[in-house]
Measured scan of single mutants.
Amino acid sequence: NDEAKKEAEKLWKNNKSEDEIKERLERAGISPDEAEQWLQELR
């Protein structure tokens, strides 16, 4: 999970869309709710 979150953070810094980041997190096995929460922390 931490690995996926690091990846999400990297994508965020590269200005990827939130949808793309969420999709990537969900593919890594993170629930949509958790993915949404993680994005809010990044904002």
Rank of each mutant, 00 (worst) to 15 (best):
Glu41Asp: 09
Lys10Glu: 14
Ala28His: 12
Glu34Asp: 08
Pro32Cys: 05
Arg43Gln: 08
Ile30Glu: 03
Glu26His: 13
Asp19Met: 09
Lys10Ser: 10
Leu11Arg: 00
Lys5Glu: 03
Ile30Ala: 03
Arg27Gln: 15
Gln40Asp: 11
Lys6Gln: 10
Asp19Glu: 13
Glu23Met: 07
Glu20Ala: 04
Glu41Met: 11
Asn1Tyr: 15
Arg27Val: 11
Gly29His: 00
Ser17Ala: 05
Ala28Lys: 05
Asn1Cys: 14
Lys16Gln: 07
Asp19Cys: 14
Asn1Pro: 14
Glu20Val: 05
Arg27Trp: 12
Lys10His: 11
Gly29Lys: 00
Arg27Asn: 13
Lys5Ile: 05
Glu20Gly: 02
Lys10Trp: 15
Lys22Ile: 09
Gly29Asn: 02
Asp19Trp: 12
Glu36Leu: 08
Glu7Met: 15
Pro32Thr: 08
Glu36Tyr: 06
Ala8Gly: 04
Ser31Asp: 09
Asp19Asn: 08
Ser31Val: 02
Ile30Asn: 01
Arg24Gly: 09
Glu3His: 11
Arg24Met: 15
Asp33Gly: 09
Glu20His: 03
Leu11Tyr: 06
Lys22Phe: 07
Asp2Pro: 08
Glu3Cys: 14
Asp2Arg: 10
Ala35Phe: 06
Glu20Thr: 03
Asn15Glu: 04
Glu3Phe: 11
Glu9Gly: 06
Gln37Pro: 01
Asp19Pro: 04
Asn15Ile: 02
Lys5Trp: 15
Lys13Tyr: 12
Ile21Leu: 04
Arg43His: 05
Arg24Lys: 12
Pro32Gln: 08
Glu36Arg: 05
Glu9Phe: 13
Gln40Pro: 01
Ile21Thr: 03
Gln37Asp: 06
Glu36Ser: 08
Leu39Ala: 01
Asn14His: 08
Gln40Arg: 11
Trp12Ile: 04
Lys13Phe: 12
Leu39Tyr: 03
Glu18Thr: 06
Asn15Gly: 15
Arg24Glu: 13
Asn14Glu: 15
Ile21Tyr: 03
Arg24Leu: 15
Asn15Gln: 07
Asp19Ile: 09
Glu34Gly: 02
Lys10Cys: 13
Glu20Trp: 07
Lys5Leu: 08
Pro32Asn: 08
Gln40His: 11
Asp33Glu: 14
Ala35Asp: 00
Ala28Trp: 15
Asp33Gln: 13
Glu34Tyr: 03
Gly29Asp: 03
Lys13Glu: 07
Glu18Asn: 04
Ala35Arg: 02
Arg43Gly: 03
Ile21Ala: 03
Asp2Trp: 14
Gly29Pro: 03
Arg43Phe: 08
Leu39Asn: 00
Arg24Ile: 15
Lys16Cys: 15
Lys5Arg: 12
Ala8Val: 08
Gln37Arg: 14
Asp19Ala: 14
Ile30Asp: 02
Ile30Lys: 01
Asp2Val: 12
Asn1Ala: 14
Lys16Asp: 04
Lys5Phe: 15
Ala35Gly: 01
Gln37Ile: 09
Trp38Lys: 01
Glu18Leu: 12
Glu34Leu: 15
Asp2Leu: 14
Trp38Thr: 02
Asn14Met: 13
Asn15Met: 05
Glu34Trp: 04
Ala4Asn: 04
Glu9Ala: 13
Leu39Pro: 00
Asn15Pro: 02
Glu7Gln: 07
Lys22Trp: 07
Asn14Ile: 07
Pro32Ile: 06
Glu20Cys: 15
Asn1Gly: 10
Leu11Ser: 04
Ala8Trp: 04
Arg27Gly: 10
Arg24Pro: 02
Asp33Val: 12
Glu26Tyr: 14
Ala8Asp: 01
Ile21Glu: 01
Lys16Thr: 13
Lys5Thr: 04
Lys16His: 15
Leu39Trp: 02
Trp12Asp: 01
Trp38Asp: 00
Asn14Lys: 06
Lys16Leu: 14
